[in-house]
Design a protein around this nucleic acid. Structure first.
Lengths: 121, 121
DNA sequence: TTGGCACGTAAGCAATCACTTACGTATATT
DNA sequence: AATATACGTAAGTGATTGCTTACGTGCCAA
């Protein structure tokens, strides 16, 4: 049975702590149990559980029971709100994405040179 | 004289508060004074100043004195750390970028520099 | 059944956060 | 000079964070 969150705290708050971002990074590789995650941190295992609870409540992870283990699974779709907010600022510093957007909108596919780098200001 | 931050708190922490994200949104339109910003919030003006201090310390804004005003200016480049961290997860939910990556890999027959991010691990 | 393992939760605590009001300082106006 | 404006800072406060240790529950193995 997959358990999802009931509350709805902020994703921005959830990712504000370095340890929680590290946990997400680890879960991006593969699902992991609490003990497997705790092995990467100096804090106590209950502390890891508390961070996981925050991630669970934010919807960024789900948990699944396997015997006496609980494997945590990344739900990267929940990062969409961060991406969407950040997208407003991309035009300021990401020429490449802007060009990609133009390229995709055009969809002419005659221009075969989307791989140019330019940090022009 | 443009004043930049001396300390170096986390950008992730700076953007974790909704009010501070809103301030950045407002500064993305144009530079603004503290009073101009405070007009968009219910909190007191000193509270706005305190939030601006956090943004200043994170490097997300700079301040510039103009007479008795202080105009705050967005420094969107400081959001790069957020973008870079988020980029690791794009392959999970951004079909467009994934297609671009596939496209670039497919057209990589020559010795051209790949401009897609290496999503290794 | 008995014991051990994996995990969540409760309780407690120091530190930090997010606000308030009060006040100080520099600049502009008259 | 006197006053008003724009702003930062100090001090105080209640709420929250991030950790710890202690303990309870559920599952598995001997």
């Amino acid at each position: 049975m997959v358990v999802t969150s009931n509350r709805e705290p902020d994703v921005f708050t959830a990712i504000s702590h370095p340890a929680r971002r590290h946990m997400l990074d680890l879960l991006a590789e593969t699902d992991r149990s609490v003990s497997a995650l705790a092995g990467h941190f100096r804090m106590s295992r209950p502390a890891v559980s508390q961070h996981l609870r925050i991630l669970l409540d934010s919807g960024l992870v789900t948990e699944q029971r396997h015997g006496r283990e609980r494997r945590y699974h990344l739900v990267p779709q929940q990062l969409a709100s961060v991406r969407d907010w950040l997208a407003r600022y991309e035009r300021f510093w990401d020429d490449r994405l802007r060009r990609l957007q133009a390229h995709l909108i055009a969809t002419k596919s005659n221009k075969q040179k989307p791989c140019a780098k330019s940090n022009h200001e």
